[in-house]
């Protein structure tokens, strides 16, 4: 079985984010592997590892796929040090400013070329926060969509996968034949920390750099010029006014109610 995991490099969640020309300023901040994608990597590894053990050979592989700038290779290294086998990084100057439609086009082309059985994704990237790429991949590839999975069960021999889809609406059990796009939520597992051995091994693992031309796509398909939504302006909100902070000396509950009444909040 060949499993792919789509992972994104994002600005550190705690970093203050700025926008320049309607785009997130990615250069000025620390970049990390999107933490929600670590759950997708963990789940893929948790499926492949016992199967490999049973087979006595590493025949089930986990490949990371990322679209992003050169330095996204750092995020891929982290995923490789968790235990993924190899990685593909799609980098091209023409990709700058791509929207979700373009991103999904590039990822779908990469997946199609790779002969994968399952593709895992996180629920959302912590910067874009759209939560749409997994659904878009399923639509583009014509594969089964199994997203918001809080539990995954794979039947390798039957080439079948079942999930518990867990959302604000409730829980649904869903089933599909391979190939499928699987999106996982953060309740699904506890991602491992890379071990020292894993970190050393990751240094020797291959990151395959691909350009748009390698995927049969042209610059006209992607990037800012091809984006179907244009940011007209991005305005920084006035910073929140510094609030009042009181220490409870026994009357804070009453003072709080005074505040709420005075502000006409209750």
């Amino acid at each position: 079985m060949k499993i792919a995991v789509c992972v994104k490099q994002v600005p550190d969640s705690w970093a203050e984010k700025k926008m320049i020309d309607g785009k997130l300023d990615r250069d000025g901040v620390d970049a990390v592997l999107n933490d929600l994608d670590e759950y997708a990597i963990e789940e893929a590894l948790a499926i492949a590892e016992p199967l490999n053990e049973a087979a006595g050979a590493p025949i089930h592989t986990v490949t990371l796929i990322s679209m992003g700038p050169d330095r996204a290779s750092e995020a891929l290294r982290k995923g490789l040090s968790m235990g993924a086998d190899d990685a593909i990084l799609i980098t091209d100057p023409a990709l700058a400013g791509s929207d979700a439609l373009a991103t999904s086009k590039v990822l779908a082309a990469t997946i199609s070329a790779g002969g994968f059985d399952l593709v895992f994704c996180g629920t959302e990237s912590t910067d874009a926060r759209m939560s749409v790429i997994p659904a878009m991949l399923a639509e583009r590839l014509g594969w089964a969509q199994l997203t918001f999975a809080g539990a995954v069960r794979v039947d390798e021999t039957g080439q079948e996968i079942e999930i518990d889809r867990s959302t604000e609406f409730g829980v649904e059990k869903m089933k599909a034949k391979f190939p499928a796009v699987v999106g996982v939520i953060e309740k699904i597992n506890e991602p491992r920390y890379p071990s020292f051995k894993g970190i050393m091994a990751a240094k020797k693992k291959v990151i395959d750099n691909k350009s748009l031309a390698d995927l049969g796509l042209s610059g006209a398909d992607v990037g800012k010029s091809a984006a179907w939504s244009v940011v007209e302006s991005a305005t920084a909100r006035a910073a929140r006014e510094k609030g009042v902070k009181i220490e409870d000396g026994g009357e804070a509950g009453n003072t709080l109610v005074d505040y709420l009444l005075e502000k006409r909040l209750v």
Binding site: M130, V132, I133, A135, Q145, T167, E168, F169, W228
Partner: peptide, 23 residues
């Protein structure tokens, strides 16, 4: 906007070649 609403929007955007805004 909801988990389901955004996924539907994503698929419809692809199927109809339409631009997408979420949230």
């Amino acid at each position: 906007s909801s988990s389901r609403g955004k996924e539907i929007a994503g698929r419809v955007a692809i199927a109809t070649d339409s631009g997408l805004i979420t949230d």
